[in-house]
């Protein structure tokens, strides 16, 4: 009996098990405290779609062997640039998704280029990717702070009325804010279902899945799984690592655009600084490790992680009205899970 429990535990993975238990616990607590479930379900679904693509960006990075992409802010910056330029050029007609589609298209060349350059960099520092990635991300974000002030944006909704540079938060009410969330949205028993958002997320997952079953996708996966095996099968490992990073950066760029439209604001300056950590934590919770990841890990992980945070929020506020317990909980869970994954990396070989 104990053995079967143990094998079962190993199969699901300790983090996923603990987080699932925690999720069920907060759900039960929510029932006991008679929380408004329609609101909770709407919220979970919204945040699931909002964070999903950012977590999905981890998958090609891990699969290609560069580890969780702690340099996610690079892609985020590209996405933000796309979003800003789309608004600046006033490509915000209804046909263009109020700027949503141009935002993605414009961000692509930035993301591809940035991902390529960064991928080449990562090939020179194999084995220490995670730490360097973190600080590359931090550096880019802090560098772009100067960029947000200096870049010649003129759109009155985006720049400070007095002074120089872009605003810290830019409202998207008049442009693509909530386009996906409201697309084909409907209500079941009062719970809002953001159909467009969910479709877009699952569509992205599907595309990535199709890619992973193509010849290139398989080569990418082998490169990460066992670089020596890949080399012996005539696969150029370094090229695939770069490809993985390009994909990850592109998905991150798309991810932040989806995130901003769902949130209703573009957030600049220091805001993207810690963007990578919840995304990394999500895929790890979903069952990924720093070396192996599947698309399902991103889906399950985001659902559990965001689910806990959403449900715990009102529960916690009922218990301790002051302070943001949910935020503290996020910090603890998120970093504990990353630490756990790090202890599983093994002696750095």
């Amino acid at each position: 009996m104990a053995d079967t429990v143990r094998t079962y535990t190993r199969k699901i993975g300790l983090p996923r098990l603990i987080i699932s238990a925690l999720f069920i616990a907060v759900c039960i607590a929510a029932v006991i405290m008679k929380q408004d479930f329609r609101l909770l379900v709407s919220d979970v679904l919204r945040r699931f779609g909002m964070f999903g693509i950012l977590a999905l960006a981890m998958i090609p990075a891990i699969q290609s062997g560069t580890g969780p992409n702690f340099a996610l802010p690079i892609g985020v910056i590209c996405g933000l640039l796309g979003g800003l330029i789309a608004i600046e050029l006033k490509l915000t007609s209804a046909i263009l998704g109020y700027g949503f589609i141009p935002a993605i298209l414009i961000s692509l060349p930035f993301a591809i280029l940035a991902g390529y350059i960064y991928g080449r960099l990562l090939n020179k520092i194999k084995g220490s990717e995670m730490l360097v990635a973190t600080y590359t991300g931090f550096s880019i974000v802090s560098f772009m702070q100067i960029g947000w002030v200096m870049l010649p944006f003129k759109h009155p909704e985006m720049i400070w009325p007095i002074g120089k540079g872009l605003r810290v938060t830019i409202a998207l009410d008049s442009t693509y804010g909530k386009v996906l969330n409201n697309l084909w949205a409907f209500k079941i028993k009062g719970a809002n279902i953001p159909t467009g958002l969910l479709l877009f997320f699952f569509g992205s997952c599907f595309l990535l899945w199709v890619f992973s079953r193509s010849k290139t996708g398989i080569a990418l996966n082998i490169s990460g799984d066992n670089p020596k095996f890949a080399a012996a099968s005539g696969i150029d490992v370094d090229k695939n690592r770069i490809l993985g990073m390009v994909l990850s950066t592109v998905i991150a760029a798309v991810g932040i655009i989806v995130y901003s439209q769902s949130y209703g604001y573009i957030q600049l300056y220091m805001d993207p600084l810690y963007m990578a950590f919840p995304a990394v934590a999500a895929v790890l919770i979903g069952g990924a490790s720093t070396k192996k990841a599947k698309i399902s890990h991103a889906i399950i992980g985001v659902f559990l992680f965001q689910g806990i945070l959403v449900v715990a929020l009102p529960v916690a506020n009922d218990m301790i009205p002051e302070g943001n317990l949910s935020e503290v909980l996020r910090m603890i869970v998120q970093n504990a899970i990353i630490l756990y994954a790090l202890t599983k990396v093994g002696g750095g070989d």
Binding site: K215, I222, N226, F229, A232, S233
Partner: peptide, 27 residues
């Protein structure tokens, strides 16, 4: 067939069928 069976020769966390086919698929 490499001398380093577990290091070079196999994808240890992949299925037998995947291991058998994948090189030919790529090449």
């Amino acid at each position: 067939v490499s001398e380093d069976r577990r290091g070079v020769g196999l994808l240890l966390d992949a299925s037998i069928e995947y291991n058998i086919a994948v090189t030919t698929l790529q090449v």
